[in-house]
């Protein structure tokens, strides 16, 4: 082959209509690409979920056992021993709903963070919009969440039968758990996108995540209603702390789920919180998607 200069080669490429590789596609094209990979996201997600628990004797049962054990510990320590559930009658339902749903957030954040970094092998051998990875990761956690939600509902129902607890009625309102979890899912995908990009570019951040998550756990009222402890803060802090604690996304989603299942005055259906839930989900998903897309051409380089 005769030697050619760089300009000649580029002219040749243009002449035959070749496209340049490794360039970030326009946003709209990218969205269509990701949408076309829907089946791949689903299959990769469900298979990952299945493979995760496959090497144990109890197998898929662990997907349910794990959050139950987790919730039992918190019920024992925070609900019974410390008794920190101010103003909440059904402590068990409160903690179980909190723990089961927060686990989904936690897994999505961790999974999203790892989704690019841990799968560089896959990124370096196949061509697909990288957004598939965080999406399928969250999908895999949703897959394990669904059976455990059934168990969660049963525990909440059963807690009403215990002595000292008001009976928990099974109403049509329970169906609202589905949109609540749906919104949480959309929100989690957004968070996973953001984490994926951050950790792919700066792997060190992976070490900070667990601390941020623990802070979020306490600040969202997962195991005790943290908002009710605000009055122990100095006066000038109370106002804005309450606003943040009450209206930050994770707290909103937990409220929506509790309002659906628990029959208590502290958790009445609140249209404002539903709107807020929708807004948070859309904002995080759209922002996360764009943030992730802007790094598309950089994933897999190092």
């Amino acid at each position: 082959m005769p030697a050619t200069s760089s300009a000649e080669r580029r002219a040749e490429a243009e002449k035959y209509g070749l496209t340049k590789m490794g360039v970030r596609p326009p946003l709209w094209t990218y969205i269509k690409d990701v949408a076309r990979r829907g089946p791949f996201i689903r299959v990769l997600g469900t298979s990952t979920a299945y493979a995760r628990n496959q090497n144990t004797y109890l197998g898929q049962l662990w997907a349910v056992l794990n959050p139950i054990l987790n919730a039992s510990v918190y019920v024992l320590i925070f609900g019974m021993l410390l008794n920190v559930s101010r103003g909440v009658d059904n402590t068990i339902a409160f903690i179980v709903i909190g723990v089961f749903l927060f686990r989904f957030v936690e897994q999505s954040v961790n999974g999203g963070a790892q989704s690019i970094a841990k799968r560089s092998n896959l990124i370096r051998s196949l061509h697909f919009p990288r957004a598939v990875l965080p999406l399928s990761n969250v999908m895999s956690h949703l897959t394990t969440l669904v059976p455990s939600l059934v168990v969660m509902c049963l525990i909440v129902l059963g807690s009403g039968l215990l002595p000292g607890y008001d009976p928990v009625p099974l109403t049509w309102e329970w169906l609202l758990l589905v949109p609540a979890v749906g919104l949480l899912w959309v929100f989690n995908m957004g968070i996973a996108f953001i984490m994926a990009r951050l950790v792919a570019i700066t792997p060190d951040l992976d070490n900070v995540i667990s601390f941020v998550l623990r802070l979020t756990m306490y600040a969202s009222g997962v195991i005790f209603p943290v908002v009710r402890y605000v009055n122990e803060l100095p006066q000038w802090m109370q106002g804005w702390t309450t606003t943040i604690l009450e209206y930050q996304p994770v707290a909103v989603y937990l409220y929506l789920a509790r309002a659906s299942l628990m029959n208590e005055d502290a958790f009445l259906q609140d249209p404002f919180k539903w709107w807020l839930g929708i807004i948070w989900a859309v904002v995080f998903f759209v922002a996360g998607f764009i943030i992730f897309w802007r790094g598309e051409e950089r994933y897999g380089r190092d």
Binding site: R10, L18, T19, K20, M21, G22, I123, G300
Partner: peptide, 11 residues
């Protein structure tokens, strides 16, 4: 196109 180029290009 799996590893983004540092410089140069692939068509």
């Amino acid at each position: 196109g799996l590893i983004p180029p540092h410089s140069g290009s692939v068509y």
